[in-house]
């Protein structure tokens, strides 16, 4: 009996100490990790789609609420004037959700470009939607363009052999288009 109590006590103590230690480390690194994620995951894509901005896009990120939902948006500024906005929408692909960041030029109302943030598509096949040869399809397109793959009557050249993934990206872009007027309103308000 004594042995059992000792086992329980020792394990509890070890686990508790470890728990506290981990909590402390977590606390200490939390903010830095968040910055790193933004810098390395969203950063490159945001910088690409809003490439002619003069401000620090990651630092100037903001959360706004549209129709009761919060969205993380990145506002690009030129000469301290906001000229473009980018935000992420997702759509279901072949292997899971594909997160697509779409940049909009709010002055001219065009799509500046897109970047793929997250995906779990088949390497070498669906994963090729994140290559620039595919994403460049969307550069500088007007909002009323048909954001569909060519098989569906749109203008987008699908990645060969990966129509499902290509369609998913298009559908995410179309979702962004729906949201864009609301977000533009909010930014203009500011």
């Amino acid at each position: 009996m004594k042995e059992y109590i000792r086992m329980v006590v020792v394990l509890t103590v070890i686990a508790t100490v470890c728990g506290f230690l981990l909590a402390a480390v977590r606390k200490g690194t939390e903010t830095r990790i968040e910055e790193q994620v933004l810098l390395y995951v969203q950063g490159p894509a945001v910088n690409k789609v809003l490439s002619s901005s003069t401000n620090d896009l990651i630092q100037d990120r903001q959360e706004i609420s549209v129709q009761g939902q919060d969205y993380l948006i990145f506002v690009g500024e030129r000469n301290t004037q906001p000229w473009a906005v980018a935000f992420e929408r997702t759509a279901g692909g072949y292997g899971g959700d594909i997160g697509v960041l779409v940049g909009f030029d709010i002055e001219r109302d065009i799509v500046t470009g897109i970047g793929i943030l997250t995906h779990s598509e088949t390497p070498g096949l669906g994963a090729r939607v994140s290559e620039s040869i595919f994403t460049d399809n969307f550069n500088n397109k007007t909002l009323n363009a048909n954001f569909n793959v060519k098989q569906d009557g749109g203008f987008v050249d699908a990645v060969s052999g990966a129509t499902i993934s290509s369609r998913a990206v298009c559908s995410a872009v179309r979702k962004s288009l729906e949201l864009y007027p609301e977000i533009k309103k909010e930014i203009v308000k500011q």
């Binding site: 042995e3 981990l22 690194t29 830095r32």
Partner: peptide, 27 residues
């Protein structure tokens, strides 16, 4: 550490250090 729970204890200790490494590396 009692003999019967040694593997469990080791794993907890190792796991703690691994998570620390993970967090630090992430940061």
């Amino acid at each position: 550490i009692p003999k019967k729970v040694r593997i469990a204890s080791y794993i907890v200790i190792i796991a703690t250090f691994v998570v620390i490494v993970e967090l630090v590396m992430q940061a």
